Simulated scan of single mutants.
Amino acid sequence: MSAGLALLLIGTTAGPAAAARPGGGSWRPGAPVAVVDQASRRVLVLHGADELMAFHGPDHLPVVWSWTADRDTALADLSPARSWSSPTEAKSRVRDGRRYLLTTASGGLAAVVDLATGTPVWAVDTGPTANPHSAELLPDGNVAVVASTGGWVRVYTASQGPRSTDHAEYPLAGAHGVHRDARTGLLWTVGDDTLTALRVGGTAAAPVLTPERTLALPEPGGHDLAPVLAAPGQFWISTAGRLWRFDPSHDRFEAVPVTPQESAREVKSVGDEPGTGRLLTTAPDHAGPCTWCTSVLTCHRPDGIRRLEGTHLYKARWWTGR
């Protein structure tokens, strides 16, 4: 087993208990990992690196939790056969002591799912042409959604009901990534060419979006936006050809060197593991019918890969709740 993903041993909680190491001693599993698999149309939380090495196809992955809109009768009114096509996001967030999955799909669906029950607490169909790519849960229970083809950032009034479609909207070409910085309350969003910080004002029932800062990306093709867990207030950003670390206190983009450098191209998701700083990324491997997907999870610092044959992975995230 290569060292790069040696700590991808996971449980269903953010802080698994130490386990016995074969031959004596103890070790603490690394953070859980969730993947978006477009082949099986599921969000999967995987059990561990050892199991990843031994799996025999997508139906035998070491899955400890999964969710799909296809099997959720509560979402039948949102036409999941279409709206759940090509899922694009899986984030874990905690609010008021409860943990949620935030998920989106290119077909139009955006949803918040209670992990304890597997029940959607809010969901909306944004339509077949918007192409939602990410979402964020706000402190008041509302949900920010970004859509690349739609070219918008929206804050939906999810706090007002499980099918609330009222929203505030801000135009952003190629909107792909969104993250709320709890330190400043700003909603950061990334599009094709720009990084924009929005202030969410108004009320929970009638939110208002106001731009506070807009910066040009160092190169086009903005895609993922994620917090640097080791440095709160900073962000990972992926563009067409590079990975970047952004420090808003100095408006500075710093290129992130990875090995091989080619693995930094077209990155769909990036994030650092709590405690270790290990980076986890996904990028298209151009080896299957899904030209934007991959069957490979890649780690950096230390480097290592896991190939999950039969999957069409779009994003992979440390399952941390942040």
Score class of each variant (00 low, 15 high):
residue 228 V to Q: 12
residue 7 L to T: 13
residue 81 A to G: 15
residue 268 K to F: 11
residue 221 G to L: 05
residue 145 V to R: 03
residue 187 L to G: 01
residue 301 R to L: 15
residue 260 P to K: 07
residue 274 P to D: 10
residue 76 A to E: 12
residue 19 A to L: 15
residue 234 Q to P: 05
residue 60 H to K: 00
residue 104 T to G: 03
residue 269 S to H: 09
residue 50 D to T: 10
residue 134 S to N: 14
residue 162 P to E: 07
residue 14 A to S: 15
residue 98 R to L: 09
residue 119 T to S: 13
residue 81 A to C: 06
residue 221 G to Q: 05
residue 147 A to D: 10
residue 14 A to I: 12
residue 193 D to N: 13
residue 43 V to P: 01
residue 15 G to P: 10
residue 6 A to W: 12
residue 8 L to K: 08
residue 63 V to W: 01
residue 229 L to C: 08
residue 162 P to T: 07
residue 60 H to D: 12
residue 109 L to N: 02
residue 75 L to I: 01
residue 155 V to H: 06
residue 184 T to K: 02
residue 86 S to Y: 14
residue 196 T to D: 08
residue 238 S to G: 09
residue 180 R to N: 04
residue 138 L to G: 01
residue 205 A to T: 09
residue 269 S to P: 01
residue 64 V to H: 10
residue 203 T to A: 03
residue 259 T to V: 15
residue 29 P to R: 00
residue 71 R to A: 13
residue 41 R to P: 07
residue 238 S to V: 05
residue 126 T to I: 11
residue 51 E to T: 01
residue 86 S to N: 14
residue 117 T to L: 09
residue 154 R to Q: 13
residue 233 G to P: 02
residue 307 R to N: 13
residue 71 R to T: 11
residue 73 T to A: 12
residue 251 D to P: 00
residue 315 K to S: 13
residue 179 H to M: 06
residue 117 T to H: 07
residue 21 R to E: 14
residue 188 W to C: 03
residue 267 V to T: 06
residue 40 S to R: 10
residue 242 R to Y: 11
residue 247 D to N: 02
residue 103 T to D: 05
residue 245 R to D: 10
residue 21 R to W: 15
residue 20 A to H: 11
residue 281 T to F: 08
residue 318 W to Y: 14
residue 300 H to A: 07
residue 198 L to F: 04
residue 6 A to D: 15
residue 175 A to L: 05
residue 183 R to H: 11
residue 11 G to Y: 09
residue 7 L to V: 09
residue 106 S to Q: 10
residue 124 V to T: 13
residue 98 R to P: 00
residue 274 P to Q: 08
residue 215 L to T: 12
residue 57 G to Y: 03
residue 154 R to E: 14
residue 303 D to G: 14
residue 155 V to E: 06
residue 143 V to L: 08
residue 216 A to L: 15
residue 108 G to F: 03
residue 119 T to Y: 12
residue 311 T to G: 05
residue 60 H to C: 07
residue 64 V to E: 12
residue 148 S to N: 13
residue 112 V to D: 04
residue 78 L to S: 02
residue 116 A to G: 13
residue 139 P to V: 01
residue 7 L to R: 12
residue 20 A to Q: 13
residue 200 V to E: 04
residue 174 G to N: 04
residue 233 G to Y: 03
residue 126 T to M: 13
residue 102 L to F: 01
